[in-house]
């Protein structure tokens, strides 16, 4: 489970002064459910997820991930989280096996446990063919599979996906979406950020719309449809952020 309470994060920027990337963000992500964080570029999705994964420290507010407080036990939080983002790359000079084994060791797993777990993951993800090849020679699909194996090696209770389908071809993107759904079906808590409306519609149990660092609307797809009187997710999104003018203004920054 993930609980975020009034998370606020500000940065100093030379040109823009103090920038509020996340402002008073509160939400709860239940066990065995997918929480979708929907927002335009620069809305604060990545910052929020980095706060949950303890990569960043909040300026104010708190969050609890898998029962651990991010401020007091960041290492325990990370031990229970699998974090997959477009910006989490692989070590090109390591093989897929070495890459996944390395992260197993960093999670304090024994070599025996890593071997057993990797065997299971390689079966599930169909990785055997390229397991002992170096990552820099991989296709995008192979890279994604290896990254997924890396996030799952320690079997975390919470999965955080930050725009995992960004820049991927249709087939690879579809396999990722399927994999995210599998995670939920296995009882994991999943938080998924994207700016692709259709993914949210298909995938998420609860949707949070984030705009200019604030969570402006939250609920199931049905809730949001009722609240904004629209069927289409894109229309709901535009209304939630305060119209096209507000969206265009936010995207300027």
């Amino acid at each position: 489970m993930i609980e975020a309470h009034h998370l606020t994060k500000t940065f100093k920027d030379k040109k823009r002064g103090i920038v509020t990337a996340a402002s008073d963000v509160s939400f709860t992500c239940q066990l065995g459910r997918i929480y979708g964080l929907l927002g335009a570029n620069g809305a604060g999705k990545t910052t929020t997820l980095r706060l949950l994964a303890t990569l960043l420290k909040p300026t104010s507010g708190t969050c609890t991930v898998a029962g651990h407080d991010a401020a007091t036990a960041p290492e325990k939080v990370r031990a229970n989280v699998g974090f997959l983002a477009a910006s989490t790359a692989l070590y090109g000079r390591l093989t897929a096996r070495e890459m996944v084994t390395y992260f197993g060791r960093l999670n304090s797993m024994t070599d025996e446990a890593i071997r057993t777990r990797l065997q299971v993951l390689a079966d599930e993800l169909d990785m055997h063919e390229f397991l002992d090849r170096r990552c820099d020679k991989f296709s995008t699909g192979m890279k994604q599979k290896t990254s997924i194996a890396r996030t799952l090696i320690h079997d975390p209770a919470v999965m955080i996906f930050d725009e995992p389908t960004l820049g991927l071809d249709v087939m690879t993107a579809r396999s990722i979406v399927k994999f995210v759904r599998d995670c939920r079906n296995r009882g994991k808590t999943v938080i998924y950020s994207t700016h692709v409306m259709s993914e949210v519609e298909k995938l998420c149990d609860t949707i949070g719309i984030i705009h200019a660092g604030r969570l402006v609307a939250e609920g199931t797809l049905a809730d949001l449809q009722a609240r904004f009187g629209e069927k289409d997710m894109e229309e709901i999104f535009v209304k939630a952020v305060g119209g096209e003018a507000a969206l265009a203004e936010a995207l300027k920054h």
Binding site: A53, L55, E75, K76, R78, A79, V81, F83, A85, S87, T88, A89, L90, Y91, G92, F103, L106, N107, S108, R150, T151
Partner: peptide, 14 residues
Amino acid sequence: ERGTMETLLCSPVH
């Protein structure tokens, strides 16, 4: 530059 720093920081290592 290669984007592996964030991957490494995701691990529970201090």
